[in-house]
Design a protein around this nucleic acid. Structure first.
Length: 546
RNA sequence: GCGGCUGUAGCUCAGCGGAUUAGAGCAUCGGUCUACGGAACCGAGGGUCGGGGGUUCGAAUCCCUCCAGCCGCACCA
């Protein structure tokens, strides 16, 4: 940015040094000239400091004017952009398999990005690319038949997906007869046998219903309508292969049909293939991903595709896009990005696992956090009880988990520490919720006399600091979205909350008299709405009281 | 071997399209306190920004190189 908030003045501009270098002139001399040419009534003073920094202090009347422009705007001056059609591809659990920590980041980051895109005015097409096809379904369907359909539905509907999957797996590994039937069942499934398809639908539907419960616990906006699983692309896979063949891109290599996009090498330094059709004639996931690209470009008419995926997928998707471009299926005007994220680590800094070495269920993670939030509410004492209290504990728990995930730079691995994120102190979701709740508390107390003033209090340093923070929201939001980095917005919100609590500590609101009171209420009101909006676009609730 | 990502205070993390003394939270120590909700505020100690070179008036930030860790590198997705 040309200007950044400074602790030495309101803003600092340090572009003069770069300019001086290009001009080959002393920076301070150039700075003098720039200051001499400044004619802007909003500036109260400009000081040249150090080698040529411009420390800019704004006139209070100008700050007030800027804040008043934000004041009535529901969007807080975030521009409503020209609508683009954006696919956000995220979450992607597997049918008949538990959702575990491995799905947390894709789900939480993807949902935040989807919400941010929507708020910016784009048309979001959320896509939940669930794993609902492939060889495991032979054994899963056979297992379903073994234990009976009713029993299978019962097991899946209580969310015991792992048990179901493991039982099938065990039989598949230990029982040759079962293994044989499973393989035959895969053939029947792929051949479109009606009864097999019906049973497959049972598995899929039960799983999607279960995923819906998890999303609900996390307050994630994905719906069953957003589920467009791998199976959706089945009938387009042959077309992918055929068209690549027609284009002359397909090469047979070791029995598989491949495309060799330039620039990718295997460990022997030879060209690396994207395997579209395996040597056993089955289709690999590359074929599915290529079909998805075509569908999204040709039928959904997307302008952008955002894949929220783990780091191991990076090369694969780059190859898919490279091939799609070679085939002419992916025009340059379509922006494709991977919102790559790092791993969730346990306290030992290794992949987060349970004590028994298994993947941790997402639901148990959330339930643990809710329980802790509940306990803390009890310890601190709360006016709320019953359903309200339970709802609040859920809101706090979700904020703790989501904020901890979102506030870390996406690509970094991060250490999952429930104690720290539900501790409610420091840089946490609950701290931000608390700052918001304190704002609301002021207005509750103020009662009938709670109308924010038309102007803003801007004499105390803490008031100005808060004001400068409030004015920075649009830029924080926009840079966060443009870079697909929700943590930038998190950093902003935490900084704003700190500015507010410092103000809150030093500048009494309700006990102030006359216009000062209403002008401080105006700051409180705008702060509350900024926090609520900022948290909201990240998928975090801002309760009225805690 | 090739490619990608990562390495910043005791711990968890920001900052990285260069800029004045490298920031925050936690922890530690010390203050504030009749509190508009203390889940708070203020302050202190604590860092050769993995090592080494280079570009620059100026580098955590750009370039090169080395070290360490993680991930990927042909038919499960």
């Amino acid at each position: 940015p040309a200007l950044r908030i400074s602790d030495r003045s309101d803003y600092q501009a340090n572009g003069v040094m770069a300019l001086a270098k290009r001009l080959g002139r002393p920076p301070r001399e150039v700075a003098e000239e720039v200051v001499g040419a400044l004619h802007f009534e909003g500036i109260e003073s400009v000081e040249i400091a150090g080698p040529g920094f411009l420390n800019i202090t704004l006139a209070s009347a100008f700050l007030d004017h800027q804040l008043r422009a934000l004041g009535p705007d529901e969007r807080l001056a975030v521009a409503n952009v020209l609508e683009r059609r954006v696919v956000v591809d995220y979450s992607a659990p597997n049918v008949a398999k538990e959702m575990h920590v491995g799905h947390l980041r894709s789900t939480v980051i993807g949902d935040a990005l989807a919400r941010m895109y929507r708020f910016a005015g784009h048309h979001v097409l959320a896509r939940n690319h669930v794993g609902d096809w492939g060889t495991p379904f032979g054994m899963l369907i056979e297992h379903l038949l073994d234990i009976g359909e009713d029993q299978a539905v019962a097991t899946l509907s209580i969310g015991d997906l792992d048990a179901f999957y493991k039982e099938a797996r065990t039989k598949f590994d230990d029982d040759d007869g079962f293994k044989g039937r499973s393989r035959a069942r895969v053939v029947a499934l792929q051949g479109g046998d009606p009864e097999t398809l019906r049973l497959w639908h049972v598995l899929v539907n039960e799983s999607i219903a279960y995923f819906g419960e998890v999303y609900s616990k996390l307050d994630v906006t994905l719906t069953p309508d957003d589920v467009v699983g791998e199976s959706y692309y089945n009938e387009r896979l042959e077309g992918v292969v055929r068209d690549l063949e027609t284009l002359g891109l397909l090469v047979e290599s070791e029995g598989a049909l491949c495309v060799f996009p330039p620039g990718f090498q295997n460990r022997e330094g030879e060209p690396l293939p994207l395997i579209v059709q395996k040597s056993d004639d089955g289709f690999g996931y590359a074929a599915t991903d290529l079909a998805a690209v075509r569908d999204r470009v040709d039928h959904l008419h997307v302008d952008e595709m955002i894949y929220v995926v783990g780091a191991p997928q990076v090369q694969h998707l780059e190859m898919v896009w490279a091939v799609a471009r070679m085939a002419g299926w992916l025009p340059d005007r379509v922006r494709c990005e991977q919102a790559v994220f790092g791993n969730v680590l346990g306290p030992d800094h290794k992949m987060f696992k349970s004590r028994s070495g298994e993947n941790v269920k997402l639901v148990s993670l959330i339930d643990d956090a809710v329980e802790r939030a509940f306990t803390i509410l009890d310890e601190r004492g709360t006016d709320l009880d019953g359903d309200e209290k339970y709802l609040l504990a859920q809101q706090i728990a979700r904020a703790a988990i989501k904020y901890a995930d979102l506030s870390t730079e996406r690509q970094h691995d991060y250490v999952f520490d429930l104690d720290r994120m539900v501790a409610f102190e420091g840089d946490t979701g609950p701290y931000l919720q608390y700052a918001h709740a304190r704002v609301r508390s002021i207005f509750r107390r103020a009662g009938n006399d709670a109308a924010p003033g038309a102007h803003f209090a801007l004499t105390e340093p803490a008031e100005r600091d808060l004001a400068l923070g409030l004015l920075a929201f649009p830029e924080a939001f926009e840079s966060s979205l443009a870079s697909l980095q929700p943590h930038r917005l998190c950093t902003y919100l935490f900084d704003l909350a700190q500015r507010f609590t410092a103000f809150y500590d030093r500048c009494p609101v309700l006990s102030s008299e006359g216009s000062l009171r209403s002008e401080r209420l105006a700051l409180c009101d705008l702060t509350g709405r900024t926090l609520r909006l900022g948290l909201g676009v990240l998928g975090i609730d801002a309760p009225e009281q805690m």
